[in-house]
Amino acid sequence: MPKYTLSVNGNLLSAEADADTLLLWVLRDHLNLVGTKFGCGMAQCGACTVHVDGQAARSCVLPVSGVGTRKIVTIEGLSSTGDHPLQQAWEELDVAQCGYCQSGQIMSAAVLLKENPHPSDEDIDNAMGGNICRCGTFVRIRKAIHLAAKKNKAK
């Protein structure tokens, strides 16, 4: 079985896996980074969203052999102290219900804020349309992204 060395959250981590193994399962089963969630396996729900070289990517359709030297960031690495403005805003507004989709939501939102520090509701809807929340927390998600944008500005 081939061995892959991946840059994940700033560390070089190795995993022996078949070339077609999807990044999601390498993260979860091999590297024990279970914050990235399995939801659909076909890039339909966004629960598995990670950053690949700063872009939001669905790890459930990305073969490990295609990652190469690109830098992966998962929810565990979004902030070393767990206090990214989005994480703070999510907690302040008590966004989560079951919570399962929220790591993917936050990872998508982090890319949005990097590219568009002060998004409108419409910008948010356009950027976050790939992330399903079955509990229906969307109204709070919009509010939390606006709040995080404000926190960023205040910094």
């Binding site: 980074l33 279970v34 914050g35 990235t36 969630k37 399995f38 998962t74 929810i75 565990e76 979004l78 767990g82 989005l86 994480q87 999510w90 907690e91 302040e92 008590d94 989560a96 919570g99 399962y100 929220q102 790591s103 936050i106």
Partner: peptide
């Protein structure tokens, strides 16, 4: 606030999966 809010937002193991 939900008692697990911080674990949820930081991706800690919480679920059966």
């Amino acid at each position: 606030t939900d008692v697990d809010a911080h674990k949820i937002t930081t991706g800690k193991p919480l679920y059966g999966i």
